[in-house]
Design a binder for these strands. Structure first.
Lengths: 200, 200
DNA sequence: TTAATAAAATACCGATCGGTATATTTTAGT
DNA sequence: ACTAAAATATACCGATCGGTATTTTATTAA
């Protein structure tokens, strides 16, 4: 049994997959153990046999949610070559977040940050690291573009990363609460202009 | 007893004032009735004598939190005359939100929206209306500036309102989760430039 | 195939949840 | 000062919370 996953490892993964969307939608405090048994079809005993407590499931679920988004974005980025086009992937993806199943409960970073910032240090820390990772990878895309001569030499990568993330997260919040993507579209149009303005 | 408030009305107000920060910090699901008795020093009986249920306290608390921020902003705005200066009040206020006591748990609209969008229709509705009110008043400030010849004629008030709100909410989320205002400062500097760029 | 082991289900725990009925105290008009 | 009414506190309710000990079932290596 070297290569294949053990039963426990498979179950653990199954629990994470099934409960991750629940945590993203209802939040940590709003999700009960009963919600987890419902989402998985398993019993409490099985869940507590694979996880120490609710915290551990929630932390694993956050990683899963974040990785799902990250992998989707990464695939789109690797499908393009030019740095400007790569940056344009973000508005392109987030403008249709209401129809992407794994993004329908909103951005995991946004949801987790606003709930956990004052209440749950471990989750807060995870969200903070995920945010830092995201911003660093945007900065690196911009630096790459400057090296390749595709992006203006005087561009401030950190500034652009901060503004890009702010506009995306702020407009997702708005779209979710009013339950339509009208203003999100406007914000993503604006963000695309900012990005196209970086062109060398 | 015509003019003065009845005991019940005063107690009701007192409960709202004391519990509003708790709801803003811990969220609806994360706040228990025990939290409310702790924050007020009152008993369950007293709270349920003045409110039908937890929902009613939470909804009143949201209004209180939103009005607190709104009144503070309004006072700053009325202290200025020029439309550009009035718009600059927003970055000026939010860049120091970590030291304004009533803003330390974050923006009530942001906190309530991200928690309630998928779970609590009444709270979601309140947050949506508060957001609409905010954006409308920004739009009106811009329109006023155009009439007064202080803001460029070709300015799109709706677009500026959407971007202003997005940048503020998105950067507040970031500042809260990483627990420092470094990037918030950068975002507010950028927002100030956008506003100054509207000058006729 | 079997026996040891691992995993999942069942049954249960005390604590806390939101909420209520009732008793006690405060308030407020006379 | 007295009393009726209003407001608050006490005591309690069933349900659900997160979590665990134990039993049953499934897995896995020999």
């Amino acid at each position: 049994m070297s290569i294949e996953l053990s039963k426990a490892e498979r179950t653990r993964q199954y629990i994470i997959e099934k409960t991750a969307p629940v945590f993203n939608e209802k939040g940590y405090a709003g999700t009960s153990i009963h919600d987890l048994t419902e989402a998985t079809g398993l019993t409490k005993g099985s869940i507590y046999g694979n996880f120490e407590n609710k915290d551990e499931v929630a932390l694993a679920a956050f990683d899963y949610n974040f990785n799902t988004v990250t992998n989707y974005i990464k695939a789109q980025i690797l499908a393009t070559e030019n740095s400007i086009e790569r940056l344009l992937v973000y508005p392109k993806v987030y403008r249709k977040f209401l129809i992407l199943p794994f993004l329908q409960p909103g951005c995991p970073i946004l949801n987790t940050s606003t709930e956990a910032d004052d209440t749950h240090p471990k989750l807060r820390e995870k969200a903070a690291k995920a945010l830092a990772f995201w911003k660093t990878s945007i900065e690196n895309q911009i630096k790459r573009g400057m090296v390749r001569g595709e992006i203006k030499k005087n561009t401030n990568p950190t500034l652009i990363a901060i503004i890009l993330v702010s506009i995306i997260e702020g407009s997702i919040m708005q779209a979710k609460v009013v339950q339509n993507a009208k203003d999100l579209k406007v914000a993503m149009d604006y963000l695309e202009k900012i990005i196209l303005d970086l062109k060398a």
